[in-house]
């Protein structure tokens, strides 16, 4: 399905996760963040960029891997995205919802 985010029509699934990363932009990220009651800082964007790179390299995301990435530790990851770090950050990064239990 299509949804208008930050004035652009983008493809999303029924949970609101973008299905085409090439449509992603920082403006869209800011808009998606607002839906999760978040205000994005430069630190958020560093993490989003890391997640997108992992996704492009087809590395499955887990809290442990993100924590060991050197980009952000687990404590800060939770502080940046308190309502569900992997889930919410992936949504804002325009990548699919991680299917990880850990």
């Amino acid at each position: 399905m299509e949804k208008t985010i930050a004035g652009k029509s983008v493809a999303v699934n029924e949970e609101g996760y973008m299905t085409d990363l090439s449509q992603w932009s920082p403006e869209i990220a800011n808009e998606l963040a607002k839906e999760s009651n978040l205000e994005l800082s430069p630190r958020h964007f560093e993490v989003l960029e890391y997640l997108q790179t992992q996704y492009k390299n087809e590395v499955p995301l887990t809290i442990r891997r993100v924590g060991a990435s050197g980009v952000v530790d687990i404590k800060e990851f939770y502080a940046l995205f308190p309502a569900g770090p992997l889930k919410i950050s992936s949504k804002i990064a325009g990548i699919p919802k991680p299917a990880s239990c850990i």
Binding site: P60, T62, I63, R64, R65, G67, D73, I74, K75, Y78, I102
Partner: peptide, 18 residues
């Protein structure tokens, strides 16, 4: 294989996760 941490590291992760 599933990238599950050992018990000690898992406790560290739990604590860091709040």
């Amino acid at each position: 294989k599933l990238d599950l941490p050992g018990v000690k590291e898992f406790v560290e992760i739990l604590s860091a996760s709040g």
